[in-house]
Design a protein around this nucleic acid. Structure first.
Lengths: 177, 177
DNA sequence: GGGAGTCACTATCTTTATGATAGTGACTCC
DNA sequence: GGAGTCACTATCATAAAGATAGTGACTCCC
């Protein structure tokens, strides 16, 4: 999906999406985490056209998410493996997995994250590693960093933002008790 | 980006991407979390063509991520607000924000998540709410749920999967100590 | 040693999505 | 009554996605 590039935006979400925001990219990363490394394996798993797979793999390698390694010389054969940057993408995938399971599994979940010992379902939350507290307002907040643009500063200044629950309806104050 | 639909796949990540995987969707959700509600506000913030914005907003409403509310009747005017399903997407955005900041901010971060009191940078981790342990192997694992297909079961059976670190290089055992 | 099969792709062409630009209708404000 | 705001639609050019077929370099197996 592309024509407008997000890479020039200063927002880190936009910058990230520039690398993984195309239609197949995230599913390819999911399969890479599942242990797939070979072209054919991705193609079978995804049912993707080979042209598309070539383009997406090249883009992910270019973005530093995957790296190509020669595993056979006689006929040159490569495998695609996650780089540290790719491995670091894991929390995003886990969060998407949890969210997708909660909202788009009417027949019940197809994958569960469970405690390896008790087999109880896990309940994923994002917390701060040091303090263990959930990353939500009012305990945490977003502030502009050194590279923040004026636009970013403005946006952060006048709103709760990502960490605060949005107001239920600023629309028309219908209920004013 | 689209022709192949992910909605028919049984994977919750694919199902979720079907709803938010298009080029602009996630940035629109980001802006919705930032407090934007009006067509024009999204358009200005994103620099998106109005045709695209109409399509994406309609799709997000259709997917149950946003809802349209009338806030003015004289000329009918709507605002777009996050539904509970949209709000529940927050951990994905926070994870992306953190990942993007770590990898694509060579000039330094433009946004920081900080402790509201000490102003120290937060370090986001995904943990299990009950036990507080990070959602990683070997403490946790993925198991097939009741709705798992044969393909899902097979994939989960023979690999560490998303929660385990991938092997550094199963390619050619060059170093065999 | 000749045919079938595997693997990782490229070439070609059609269909679909994206994006730029302009325009519309229903107002409000001055 | 003219300018401005707002939320869109219409139209059309371009770029990306998708299907299908084909290539080259092998290996495997009678």
């Amino acid at each position: 999906m592309q024509r407008t590039s997000f890479g020039s935006m200063s927002c880190p979400i936009a910058r990230g999406l520039e690398r993984v925001g195309e239609w197949w990219s995230i599913l390819i990363l999911r399969d890479a985490f599942a242990g797939l490394t070979r072209f054919e394996a991705f193609q079978k798993s995804l049912g993707i056209a080979p042209t598309m797979l070539t383009r997406r793999l090249d883009a992910l390698v270019e973005a530093g998410m995957l790296e190509r390694q020669l595993y056979c010389e006689k006929p040159p054969r490569h495998e695609y493996r996650l780089t540290p940057r790719g491995v670091d993408f894991r929390p995003v995938l886990i969060a998407m997995l949890a969210w997708g399971s909660r909202h788009f599994a009417p027949e019940g979940p197809s994958i569960r994250i469970v405690d390896a010992v008790t087999l109880e379902d896990a309940d994923p939350v994002l917390v701060d590693r040091r303090t263990g507290r959930p990353l939500l307002a009012p305990d945490f907040k977003l502030v502009p960093g050194p590279a923040a643009t004026a636009a970013t500063r403005a946006r952060l200044a006048h709103g709760g933002g990502l960490l605060a629950d949005p107001p239920p309806s600023a629309a028309r104050p219908e209920a004013a008790p």
